[in-house]
Design a protein around this nucleic acid. Structure first.
Lengths: 206, 206
DNA sequence: GTCTATAAAACGATAGAC
DNA sequence: GTCTATCGTTTTATAGAC
């Protein structure tokens, strides 16, 4: 079994440096140096730079997925889940103002649509949209749900770009506040459970 | 006097390639090849890659500034000016979906805040915000004007990132429609000229 | 598994002939 | 002003000793 510790150190260093300095501008030498591993040894764990980048983005992808699961576990109301997810970006607003969104950065930088790394980064957004859409749907927003989910992430991404450009974290805070207010005022069109067409409990009926 | 034509060809090729393939991923060899100029000759016009990049971004900056001037010249109503400016992004939505926003891309990719290229790109956003803020102010939005101006560009940038990620130009169209509707419904709080405190015409008074 | 040395190519930039 | 040849460095990636 291969050494997990060094492999993880490489992934974490890569994820951080890709976020802060960009995918193209970060060399394997930079990553190896930050992880305190000789550059020749990097290739024992990852055959190419793309493979390491893929692992770094995939880790972020799974971290976000884990966060959705946690929200579903601890918060019953889908509206509150969406609001809590949005507040996450308030917490990281200073880092996002300095370095941008780690995912949005890769999407923007992407030259080719065929690139595996970009496709994985896109999947992170797709995962968020899928999750948020489900929350909006549970809130009774029906066919608007997907549009709302995309609009939610777009709001964050746009605010991040402008905050980075103008070096004003407040821009992210303002957008988070706007989005939260919007979601708080969304009418709950949810069909109340038990009020309509509840399935007969066939097991206990007889 | 130096040859304008070759210099301009280099700037145009650089601007296009930076937009499509990114600043870091585009080499001087790529630019020289696209402009059909030997790479050694590039350095007669621009001493460094940064200098060429600066010229390319500056050209975009001036193109946008010229567009604002045109809007002010041909449209009397500040609301219609803002709406017309927003429709611009509807026109370029397919290109933005494939390659992103040429300015937003540079801002996102930027590693260091000290970089001259990034500062110039930021200035393009700043110019837009300053212009849009003035329009909102003329519409009587007062102290909200700057926030609105930033929010307008943020909407475009966020939609562009999501459109590129999901390869759906419609996301940009939806956002443009949302922004236009928002601006159409903004109440005009403008103080009518001539209704308040008109200066006495001292020259013709006596 | 780990590390040094180095290959092979790409890149920004320069020298110098014309 | 134009172009060829090339320098020096960085980058991804490999070979091979330990």
């Amino acid at each position: 079994m291969i050494n997990i510790s060094k492999r993880d150190r490489l992934i974490d260093s890569a994820a951080m440096l890709f976020h802060h300095n960009g995918l193209t501008s970060t060399s394997l030498a930079d990553i190896a140096k930050h992880a305190d591993i000789p550059i020749g040894n990097v290739y024992y764990y990852f055959k190419t730079k793309e493979e390491l980048a893929l692992a770094a983005i995939s880790k972020r992808k799974e971290q976000f997925s884990a966060a959705y699961a946690l929200l579903e576990e601890h918060i019953a109301d889908p509206r509150q889940r969406l609001i809590e997810a949005t507040y996450y970006f308030e917490k990281v607003r200073d880092e996002y103002t300095r370095f941008g969104c780690p995912i949005g950065k890769i999407i923007s930088d992407a030259d080719s649509e065929k690139d595996n790394v970009v496709q994985t980064a896109s999947q992170v957004f797709e995962d968020f949209v899928t999750w948020a859409e489900r929350q909006f749907r549970q809130l009774g927003q029906g066919s608007d749900s997907r549009r709302y989910a995309i609009s939610l992430m777009a709001g964050i991404q746009g605010a991040t770009v402008m905050a980075k450009s103008m070096r004003q974290p407040q821009i992210i805070s303002d957008e988070v506040a706007r989005l939260v207010q919007w979601m708080e005022n969304l009418p709950n069109r949810k069909i109340q459970l038990g009020k309509v067409a509840a399935k007969p409990d066939v097991f206990n009926a007889a």
